[in-house]
Simulated assay, not measured.
Amino acid sequence: MTVAIPSQRTAPEVWIDVAARQVIRGGREVPLTRLEFDLLVFLARHPRRVFTRDHLLRSVWGYAIAGPRSVDVHIRRLRGKLVTPVVRTIYGVGYRLEDEAPITVVAD
């Protein structure tokens, strides 16, 4: 599916339409799982803030029963699907949105 977005020169690389649960990159929809989408939205709504794996498990998954490495797997898959650098690893602490992440949340 191709979605019309504003001029590519001024448009961010990644658009998140929360209401439609869609992520658009380069004018095309990126298929994400529910948890990948929720993780991306959570990080995009809290730029420059570092989150531990446990905090992400509680905030995005809704529980901390899953192993902390589950977060690593979802981050890796999200990075692979978006190609654009959007998540930074803070070694020994956790993850945060990249400072220069070209992301815009377009609907809520």
Score class of each variant (00 low, 15 high):
Thr89His: 15
Leu43Trp: 07
Val87His: 13
His46Leu: 06
Leu56Trp: 08
Val60Ile: 00
Leu57Ser: 00
Leu97Cys: 04
Asp99Phe: 15
Arg28Cys: 09
Arg88Ile: 01
Val87Ala: 07
Thr52Asp: 01
Arg49Ala: 07
Arg77Tyr: 13
Leu78His: 04
Val73Gly: 06
Asp72Tyr: 07
Arg45Phe: 14
His55Tyr: 10
Ala64Cys: 05
Pro31Cys: 08
His55Pro: 00
Arg96Tyr: 05
Arg49His: 06
Asp38Tyr: 05
Gln22Ser: 09
Ser70Glu: 13
Ile90Arg: 11
Arg48Phe: 07
Arg45Gln: 10
Val23Cys: 08
Arg96Ser: 04
Ile75Pro: 00
Arg49Trp: 04
Val93Gln: 11
Ala19Asp: 15
Arg34His: 05
Leu57Phe: 02
Arg76Pro: 06
Val83Phe: 14
Val18Gln: 13
Asp17Ser: 10
Arg69Cys: 09
Arg77Ala: 12
Val73Ala: 15
Val23Asp: 01
Val73Asp: 07
Asp54Glu: 15
Pro47Glu: 03
Asp54Cys: 07
Ile75Cys: 09
Val73Trp: 12
Ala44Gln: 03
Val71Met: 02
Pro31Val: 08
Leu35Ala: 02
Ala101Trp: 15
Gln22Ala: 11
Leu39Ala: 01
His55Glu: 15
Val71Pro: 03
Asp99Gln: 13
Arg48Asn: 07
Gly62Ile: 03
Tyr63Pro: 03
Val60Pro: 00
Pro68Asp: 03
Val30Pro: 03
Pro102Cys: 14
Pro47Tyr: 07
Phe37Thr: 00
Val41Ile: 06
Tyr91Leu: 15
Arg69Met: 13
Ala64Arg: 13
Leu97Phe: 11
Val23Pro: 01
Val86Leu: 10
Ser70Val: 11
Arg48Gly: 05
Phe51Leu: 04
Ile65Val: 14
Pro31Arg: 10
Arg69Asn: 14
Leu40Ser: 06
Leu39Met: 09
Arg79Cys: 11
Leu97Glu: 01
Arg88Val: 05
His55Ala: 13
Val93Ser: 11
Val86Ile: 06
Phe51Ser: 00
Arg25Ser: 10
Leu40Asp: 05
Leu35Met: 11
Val23Gln: 09
Arg21Ala: 07
Ala19Ser: 13
Ile90Trp: 12
Val83Glu: 15
Ile16Thr: 01
Gly80Pro: 08
Glu36Trp: 05
Val18Pro: 02
Val60Lys: 00
Arg58Asp: 13
Val87Ser: 07
Ser70Leu: 13
Pro68Tyr: 11
His55Lys: 12
Gly62Cys: 04
Tyr63Lys: 11
Pro31Leu: 11
His74Ala: 11
Gln22Phe: 10
Leu82Arg: 06
Ala66Ser: 06
Phe51Ala: 00
Ala64Gly: 11
Ala66Thr: 02
Val41Gln: 06
Val83Cys: 12
Val83Asn: 13
Arg28Trp: 13
Gly27Asn: 07
Gly94Ser: 09
Asp38Ile: 01
Arg53Lys: 11
Trp61Asn: 03
Arg25Phe: 09
Gln22Tyr: 10
Leu39Lys: 00
Val18His: 15
Ser59Gly: 00
